[in-house]
Design a protein around this nucleic acid. Sequence first.
DNA 1: CCGCCTGCGGAACGATCGTTCCGATTCGCT
DNA 2: AGCGAATCGGAACGATCGTTCCGCAGGCGG
Lengths: 196, 196
Amino acid sequence: MRERPGPSSSRRAPRRDAVRNDAVVLQAAREVFAEQGPQASMESIAARAGLGVGTIYRRFPGKDALLDAIARLFVDELDEASAAALADPDPAAGLERFLDFVGAFNTEKRRYASLLAGRIGPDDEVSRRTFERIRQLTQKAVDAGHLAPDVTGDDIRALVAAIHAVVAATPDEDGSAWRRFVRIHLAGLRADRTEG
Amino acid sequence: MRERPGPSSSRRAPRRDAVRNDAVVLQAAREVFAEQGPQASMESIAARAGLGVGTIYRRFPGKDALLDAIARLFVDELDEASAAALADPDPAAGLERFLDFVGAFNTEKRRYASLLAGRIGPDDEVSRRTFERIRQLTQKAVDAGHLAPDVTGDDIRALVAAIHAVVAATPDEDGSAWRRFVRIHLAGLRADRTEG
DNA sequence: CCGCCTGCGGAACGATCGTTCCGATTCGCT
DNA sequence: AGCGAATCGGAACGATCGTTCCGCAGGCGG
């Protein structure tokens, strides 16, 4: 039994091609899933990556795991945006920045929409963290008088879902439709609705 | 050669079981698709109907045609609702009645949501008729002063898409979430947004 | 440069599914 | 009741796809 170089490396350095392929597989999967939807075959992903199917299975237990990994990337990105928005000293600016991000994000990733369907549940830890930030951000905006007193995090969460739908229903990459939708809805969230 | 009873009946009365099965197949398909989604197998639909798969294929050319037929039922129902709303003498009441229908309709048919995905395009004749009615209804509501002057049919169409998303994002059959969402958005559509 | 081992390719397998087809069955008519 | 045709049931087929497996190539350490 020889001494090992370090506590974390057991025998050998990983092969360079293997390291490269980690990123290659994920990138190819993102492209092909975006073009063909979740029912794209593993074969077509492997072809796009310039690899064999076995190489994919050495990294991901199966197709579901591959889709989950991609979905996680998006959830994480949204979580970071919520953190940045909450850090803004002006709650109104932070909220609008966040909603802008949601719209732009959905527009950019419009072809990936079907991938997340039912893949990340409401009990996901990251999603819960994101919503908690939305809740705090909303409360700060209410306290500052930028939203009507009865508005809660649930209202903003509904708006986020609605933005997704509006972007999906809008052809091409026209950003004006969802921006107008957000402006209108924010006006409703600011308004005194005690009469209606 | 005998005289035939009429110009449209060629030989015989249709068999009673065949007439029954027309409705049986469609009902079974609706149930199974609602439970399992569009990827439910023809076999499982036939089993639910208590029939063989061949019986389904005698009525519908294939699975896609079966899904299209179901989607068409929903599109037609929405079209009728738009006609009823437009017939209301009070544009504001007609509009709110229509939006109420959309929310209730999506709640009731929540499990069918994935069936229509990409199945009925924007160039569908019935869908175009529906949108034209929405456009007229919106114009009447604007003229009556119930909506801000810059609101168009596109805004209401976006709201319809948003309602669908909010219903889908709400657990169970709680109708309060989308009702609140609609009330908020309508307040935004009524508001003078020249400042924001 | 050599030998060893990690990682790769892609054929093959089993499962699933949409669709077809034809013998058996059931119905309408006389 | 009996005949002929319309309709049905479900086995069988071909295509597709996810996954496994193992012989082989290519890179790493010496």
